[in-house]
Design a binder for these strands. Structure first.
Length: 940
RNA sequence: AGGCAUGUAGCUCAGUGGGAGAGCGCUUCCUUGACACGGAAGAGGUCGGCGGUUCAAUCCCGCCCAUGCCUACCA
């Protein structure tokens, strides 16, 4: 609900533009394709060639038109299809498969955006690129979802029977399984959609069976009876990872256990009185002198009248409770271990739904909680309850249904992980696989070092049936990919397949190679495995990344991916995790509707800094939408000025480029370098920021403004400006395309006819990614000149505002005390500054007339004539402030220069720099003093 | 209980061993022929605290505080 209010609020604030439904009334962008219409293009299955595009652009960018226009064309033309036969460097990536029943949430949107950015960039850079999409059957999650659904019709899976229920789940999958894939297309994901996989596919199931049989043969998969985590609601075993710990307020009960000889009692403290029915000992620490005399004594277990012994075990903490612990090997992992050491009997007192069983005698049939109450009451009645203390402990609950997990004795299949974990850690230590950000490697190692064997069997119906066959005669399990004719142990033919299925993460763990055709040596496997990169959230490093590393190395002898980029977790604007129960889930589909897909993608890329959280704010999306609109309008400007221009535009001789042209082309090269570098090292936010700043604050704010004159001038200047505008736009759009694919393609198609068509692709989606020019566009002198131009412009504008000039009014400027070389460079830029700051004349070293307010730059004094009614106190205030600032800095530099340590230890280059800077600041300081005096003189 | 991360402008976040940045918000002015989802000019910060290393620390190191997350078999 919270977020909905904010969306509404934002819409209200910006009511200047209509809600999405009414958008068509205002700035609809109309790109008319001669000979085709967009509807036809969208539905055409045949390759389409765009010949000529005429532009009639509305004032506001309409994302929907572009989004509908291009995606289907890209697909139809097969741009995203991977061909293993194609030569060239490889970039491959498999999607973290979303659950079939899921729909796109912001985590997916972020993830897909980052995938798509790097995949599109690599594709444009000429890599043989594969992005493989697919979904996960998500065993327990999906089964629970379907159970909930059928419960509404009063049905349950047991009544339906296994086959009918599984059919029902498949129906569900048919219904919802493709929803999230369609939503990924909406966000622009350039996957090879012809290679979509599902973890229960025939191919992947074959891989799963193969792996199970192979790992069993290697002795890594085994069957054992031990204490496992059991969800009494789902009625299945769970892995350690599927148990969440929640701090729960409860009590610590102190219970007296009388000695059988009647000589007194020992008091134990427990958080689970109901399991005492299964106690088979009481343990104390061997070094605990309070109890050392009692070890070996027998006790009468209250309520059960069973004899148990006092034993000594080092695992007991003498400081907790009374230092004496009741031991229930069948219901507590710690007790299970102690029980094994002391060969204690294991008495299970609950059934699979956590109700007390026949071993609980009088309490049989009670739920856990009811049994607890009854037992505590009975103990109290017998005077055996010594004390009750409040106590908070971390209770394990099922991560899928929140039911309190019960440690249960059960026979299950396990995967031995220690050796595989070691190998995975070694691979990361060697750098075969690298985590980004690096600190996640520590998390990975921590878990790997402590990994227990993985319980991989589940008492569920939805999943990969375990390829093991139990003999009815001797109970031996024969493991085989196909149903064996007879028991391998006794030769009995009465064998049935294990009812259980595999943990869903078992098949997910094979995903990077099973999707490429493993165990067959397919061309895809040869070409694309190991994959280049895995992008995923940190919440599944253990569940998924670790398992893929272990299984990949074990089965293919290769790491499954070279790099792992761990994304942050998307949170709401209050920093809270988004959950359905909190109702703070923001639907990315709504965001795309409201702001446009490209704006959503840009925002997610900007927020994808290498931290842990991505906090959403609607203002960010609005800013990204404004940016899209800015680009759109820049395109309108360019197109307006290409009226009648030749197609393609001829490239002007370098000598005909003005300073502004050379400067913007140099900035463009900087941008190419920075964006490429940033994406290479997965700094998506930097790539986004770099483009944003270049396009808005360099290209639009400066170059477009400076080009206006040239465009009006005609001739060579017009030709050069047109060419530079188009070249910048072309390059910008190519750089932008990975982040904002729709608007960039939309505009690129319009400017495409003006580009040099040698080797030019039909669509931006497969155009070549830019590389910086071989030769620098600017000299050092050019750079200095433009810097001075910008500083002068800003200084004049600042003075204009101070002096209260109307923005349209032209002013006259005087420049005094020009620094070294300024007079020579000035002719190159003075007209730019005059345009940008609305100046009608600049006088150099003019006889300073009265009523001029100067500002002092390090390389010149710039003055603007004040209007007749100007109050000079305001100017004095401003100059005074400037003087304070400069004095402060000068003082800092002087202090540093006089510092003995600095003189002795700083290197010469630094010293020279500081000394030079100090001289400049001193000069500036003197001039500002003079200005202040002059202003005092001007007051009258 | 351990581990990891974070702490910079009102908000959301970049950033760097030598003069503190962006977006949004705020103030003032402006509909000028691309764009008011715009333009110009501003205000606003002891860079969480305390120590240390260094000629020099917002940045490196240590401790502390706050917040978030993960892990954990104190019954």
């Amino acid at each position: 609900m919270g977020h909905a209010h904010h969306i509404t609020k934002r819409t209200d604030l910006t009511s200047a533009h209509p809600p999405p439904g009414l958008r068509h009334l205002r700035g609809v962008n109309m790109i008319q394709l001669q000979g085709f219409n967009a509807g036809e293009l969208l539905h055409s299955r045949k390759p389409v060639i765009l010949r000529k595009v005429k532009l009639e652009l509305g004032k506001t960018y309409d994302p929907k038109a572009a989004e509908e226009r291009w995606f289907q064309q890209w697909i139809d033309l097969g741009y995203f299809k991977a061909d293993p036969e194609r030569p060239g460097p490889v970039f491959s990536i498999v999607i973290p498969p979303p659950n079939v029943t899921g729909q796109l949430h912001l985590g997916h949107a972020l993830n897909a955006t980052l995938h798509d950015i790097i995949v599109r960039m690599r594709r444009m850079q000429g890599y043989n690129t594969l992005w493989l999409p697919g979904t996960d059957h998500a065993g327990i999650a999906t089964q629970n979802a379907v159970e909930k659904t059928i419960a509404k019709d009063g049905k349950n899976r047991h009544a339906m029977g296994r086959d009918a229920f599984v059919d029902r789940v498949w129906e569900w999958r048919e219904q919802y399984g493709s929803r999230i894939m369609l939503q990924l297309r909406r966000i622009g994901a350039s996957c090879d959609w012809s290679r979509e996989r599902f973890t229960l596919d025939a191919g992947l199931s074959h891989a799963v069976n193969t792996v199970f049989v192979e790992l069993h043969k290697r002795g890594l998969i085994y069957r054992d009876r031990r204490l496992i985590n059991w969800c009494p609601r789902c009625e299945t075993a769970l892995s350690d990872l599927e148990v969440e710990h929640k701090d729960t307020k409860s009590s610590l009960w102190y219970i007296r256990y009388p000695f059988t000889d009647g000589s007194g009692s020992i008091t134990v403290a427990t958080t689970r009185p109901e399991t005492m029915l299964g106690d088979t000992a009481v343990a104390v620490n061997p070094s605990d002198t309070r109890y050392s005399a009692l070890v070996g004594k027998t006790l009468k277990l209250p309520l059960m009248n069973r004899e148990i012994e006092i034993i000594a075990d080092a695992a007991v903490d003498p400081k907790f409770g009374t230092g004496a612990v009741k031991i229930t090997p069948a219901h507590d992992l710690n007790d299970f271990e102690i029980g094994r050491r002391h060969k204690l009997e294991q008495i299970s007192v609950m059934d699979t739904r956590a109700r007390m069983n026949e071993n609980a005698r009088a309490y049989q049939g009670l739920e856990r909680e009811a049994a607890r109450k009854a037992i505590v009451a009975d103990l109290e009645a017998q005077g055996l309850l010594e004390n009750i203390e409040p106590h908070t402990s971390a209770v394990g609950v099922c991560s899928r249904c929140d039911t309190v997990v019960e440690p249960m004795l059960s026979e299950q299949w396990f995967l031995r992980v220690r050796e595989m974990a070691q190998r995975a850690m070694d691979a990361v230590k060697r750098g075969d696989t690298t985590f980004h950000p690096k600190f996640w490697e520590k998390t990975f190692f921590d878990w790997m070092e402590n990994a227990y064997d993985w319980c991989i069997s589940r008492q569920l119906w939805w999943g990969h049936r375990i390829p093991a066959y139990r003999c009815e005669r001797c109970s031996h399990f024969t493991v085989a990919a196909e149903r064996p004719p007879k028991c391998e142990e006794c030769g009995g033919t009465d064998i049935i397949q294990d009812e259980d299925v595999l943990d869903t993460w078992f098949s997910s763990g094979l995903w990077p190679f099973s999707t490429l055709g493993w165990p067959d040596e397919t061309p895809e496997l040869r070409k694309y495995y190991p994959t280049s990169l895995l992008i995923t959230g940190f919440d599944i490093i253990f569940f998924w990344v670790a398992r893929m590393m272990m299984l990949g190395l074990e089965l293919t002898d290769k790491v499954p991916f070279r790099d792992v980029y761990v994304t942050a977790l998307v949170r709401d604007e209050y920093g809270k995790k988004m959950t359905k129960t909190k109702g703070n889930v923001v639907d990315p589909m709504d965001l795309m509707e409201q702001y446009g897909t490209d704006a959503v993608r840009l925002t997610l890329a900007q927020l994808a800094a290498q931290g842990r959280n991505v906090i959403l704010s609607h203002d960010r999306f609005a800013a990204a939408r404004a940016f899209a609109n800015k680009i759109w309008n820049a395109a309108r400007f360019v197109m307006m000025n290409l009226e009648g221009a030749p197609q393609p535009l001829p490239e002007p001789h370098r000598a005909k480029l003005g300073l502004a042209e050379r400067w913007i082309l140099a900035r463009l090269d900087d941008t190419i370098r920075e964006v490429t570098r940033a994406v290479d090292v997965y700094e998506f936010n930097l790539a986004a920021m770099t483009l944003y700043t270049f396009i808005w604050h360099q290209f639009c704010d400066w170059y477009i403004e400076l080009a206006k004159d040239s465009l009006k001038a005609g001739g060579d200047r017009q030709e050069a400006a047109r060419w530079v505008l188009v070249r910048c736009f072309d390059t910008m759009l190519r750089l932008l395309h990975p982040i904002m694919p729709f608007i960039s393609e939309e505009i690129w198609q319009v400017i495409r006819p003006y580009l040099d068509d040698a080797g030019l692709s039909q669509h931006l989606a497969i155009a070549k990614f830019p590389e910086p020019s071989a030769d620098a566009w600017t000299s050092a002198g050019d750079e200095a000149a433009m810097l001075h131009c910008i500083e002068a412009t800003e200084a004049i504008n600042s003075l204009r505002a101070l002096l209260g000039y109307h923005p349209g009014q032209r002013v006259s400027v005087v420049m005094n005390r020009l620094g070294q070389g300024i007079a020579e460079e000035l002719p190159g830029w003075r007209h730019y500054a005059m345009t940008m700051a609305k100046v009608d004349k600049i006088e150099i070293d003019a006889e300073a007339p009265q009523r001029i307010v100067h500002t002092v730059l390090p390389w010149a004094e710039i003055g603007v004539a004040a209007p007749a009614d100007f109050d000079f106190d305001r100017a004095r205030e401003k100059i005074g402030k400037q003087l304070d600032e400069v004095s402060k800095h000068a003082e800092q530099h002087q202090k540093r220069l006089n510092d003995e340590g600095f003189k002795a230890k700083a290197d010469q280059e630094t010293k020279d720099q500081v000394a030079e800077k100090f001289e400049t600041l001193r000069a500036q300081q003197r001039q500002l003093h003079e200005q202040l005096n002059l202003l005092s003189g001007s007051r009258a």
